[in-house]
């Protein structure tokens, strides 16, 4: 039965059909699955499946990324309210767009994906000053700062991730807090993230989930 539920849920996500995904979740709960099983046996594997599919499928598209994250986030939120015990959070992330950048879609996809992967995310919004990224990361004990930039000058400019890197270095936080970047310019130059002072980058919002979880594991506990 679980195999059928997973298959049907994956198909709904792949077809960007939110209504169908929720119907499958409701049926799963009615058939005896616990909310915990829905999240850990259905939703998280579906996100991981989409990560894999997006890498392989040339026809994977932005609409699928958006809806995958949206559905995963909404289902997870609905299930968390029914959990018997709060789930263990695997890490904490602060995320926002670089100073001067107002493009919020990529960030939203990443946030939806991370929430379903049991990562605690603080959304700092758009046009975020470098100092705030670091202060919020320290204040929230986050292991990762995520910086989205859709324009070349906000991706590589002095006020964006480069400044975040400089502040982390000056404050001796580089081992403790990792920096990940994403956005259109990085797709055109796979080495650009290094110029931007980041530890890693992700080609899209869904695979960013995997990259960030890896970075959380690399960050040293204070």
């Amino acid at each position: 039965m679980l195999t059928d539920i997973i298959k049907a849920y994956n198909e709904a996500v792949f077809e960007t059909d939110k209504e169908a995904a929720f119907l499958i979740v409701d049926k799963a709960l009615a058939s005896g699955l616990t909310p915990e099983e829905v999240v850990f046996e259905v939703v998280i594997p579906a996100v991981e499946e989409m990560m894999s599919l997006i890498t392989k499928d040339p026809d994977a598209n932005l609409a699928q990324h958006f809806m995958t994250a949206q559905i995963a986030s909404e289902v997870t939120e609905a299930m968390l309210a029914k959990f018997h015990h709060p789930p263990e959070v695997i890490g904490r992330v602060v995320i926002g767009t670089a100073a001067g950048d107002l493009h919020s879609l990529g960030k939203r996809i990443v946030i939806g994906c991370l929430k379903s992967l049991m990562v605690e995310v603080a959304d700092l919004g758009v046009n975020v000053p470098a100092e705030r990224f670091v202060d919020e990361a320290v204040g929230r004990n986050a292991q990762v700062i995520g910086i989205s930039a859709m324009m070349v000058h906000t991706a590589t400019g002095a006020d964006g991730s480069l400044k975040v890197r400089r502040i982390l270095r000056e404050r001796g936080l580089e081992d403790r807090i990792k920096v990940v970047v994403g956005g259109a310019p990085y797709r055109f130059d796979g080495e650009l993230y290094k110029t931007a002072g980041a530890d890693a980058w992700a080609a899209d919002g869904i695979t960013a989930g995997r990259v960030i979880v890896d970075l959380i594991r690399q960050a040293k506990t204070p």
Partner: peptide, 12 residues
């Protein structure tokens, strides 16, 4: 419009 001397203008 958000102008930036390092790059293209942006709708604010």
């Amino acid at each position: 419009i958000l102008f930036d001397d390092e790059g293209s203008p942006n709708v604010a």
